[in-house]
Write a protein that binds this DNA or RNA. Structure first.
Lengths: 232, 232
DNA sequence: CCCGCTATTTGCGCAACGGCAAATTGCCGC
DNA sequence: GCGGCAATTTGCCGTTGCGCAAATAGCGGG
């Protein structure tokens, strides 16, 4: 069945395209549903498709040869993912896993170069995204190099509530299930240390924990922890 | 004085352009010399130009609000740098410092969009570069998350001799002056720890140290250290 | 409603690494 | 040739945060 243009007309990525162009792109897309925990694509796999996430949240994970995992980022609604072809790769550099039930649009990789030449706004938006991710990743390197674990975890949680926060009576909550282990894999520490930190913060009334859930009740104080300088 | 096309005709970045196109691009370039330790551009500064390095080595450094520094990467001959406009930024995200005397070509930032539309091969090469840097940076995050300091330093030195190594009677030497502090800023540790590690390696005959110099005499053994898994 | 699985918490000990201080070395410029 | 400066080395100690182990707590399914 044909896809409705309203699916993508609201996304910044396609905002500068005409309705006809949007129809054209949609006509070539295939929509896909992915239940929670499904592997949408796997690291090292041939990059058959690239995607736009319409609904849900996706975890992008790198696995090392000896089985350790690092979360590269979370993808939010409206974002591109799996854009290996755009950066000159033929395999995916990481795996994408549905953090909740997800809906995405997918296009065969081989269409990328057609799209790139036909729709300059798509190209420039894509590269702006890649550039932004490069910035974010560099920032993460800086944090890992210069901050203590406590500050890194605080920064990471603040970033999560900023990009996927939802207001609740108790504070701002991360909109998808996330474990202590996940937070550890985003910050380069262990689930034990994350658990200890969050327990301490909970005692101080800064956050409210829960199974696969984090709610920040006092963002300001969490910011103070994140910015706290112990030296100098 | 006009610049000679031979300056850039050998660079992969311009390889797919016609001689006439190369002339056109060169005509708009300004060449610049930068003595060792010169700041070519500074973090946060308005991005007035983008560059290609013709000769020398450049250190790209991020400085935190409290004055700590992290080396984002080294730029080698033939590489683009300062390409803020290409990733949708108006200021430079880091500073660029000449590690040795350097020669570069510079173009005003406002020309970027003209070039991007006139020379598709330049665009795609540029984005391949950005993509590669994103990969490298992610890899660095993975290393910082999962490896001990010793392995990280070993990996970093191996990477340096791979991209800027020069054969000498004693082994392979990094082609530009680099201090223990610099290596610390690439690996997220301190110059003390780097010094201790390198002293130990020197005792074992794996490297030869020197002031602002590193020579690897036994790359194979250094690789073993880099890959050494202590757990599991 | 109970079972079983997974996530989380927490105590304990220790190893890796950073901080500090001081000595030493090599090099550049005068 | 020498003085001064920057880079490097090294010892010692303290702390952070990890490894390990075991207990506990939610949650989903049957």
């Amino acid at each position: 069945m044909p896809l409705d243009r309203s699916l993508i007309s609201g996304l910044a990525l396609f905002a500068e395209m005409t309705p006809a162009e949007q129809e054209d792109i949609l006509a070539k897309a295939r929509s896909s549903r992915h239940p929670k925990d499904a592997v949408i694509f796997a690291q090292e796999e041939e990059a058959h498709s690239f995607f736009v996430l319409l609904a849900g949240h996706i975890r992008v994970v790198k696995t090392t040869p000896d089985g350790e995992q690092v979360i590269a980022r979370y993808i939010n609604e409206g974002e591109l993912f799996g854009i290996a072809p755009a950066i000159g790769r033929t395999t995916y550099p990481a795996s994408a896993i549905a953090a909740v039930d997800c809906v995405a649009l997918a296009w065969p990789t081989r269409l990328w170069s057609d799209f790139a030449s036909s729709y300059p706004s798509l190209t420039s938006n894509t590269y702006a995204t890649v550039g932004r991710r490069l910035q974010e990743t560099q920032q993460r390197v800086v944090e890992m190099s210069t901050e203590q674990v406590e500050q890194r975890v605080a920064h990471t949680i603040l970033r999560l509530i900023k990009q996927a926060g939802r207001k609740t009576p108790e504070g701002i909550e991360i909109d998808f299930p996330i474990t202590r282990q996940d937070i550890a894999e985003m910050t380069g520490t262990t689930l034990h240390t994350v658990s200890r930190l969050m327990s301490a913060w909970e005692d101080e009334g800064i956050v409210v924990g829960g199974r696969q859930k984090v709610t920040v009740s006092d963002p300001h104080r969490l910011m103070l922890i994140a910015e706290h300088r112990r030296k100098r």
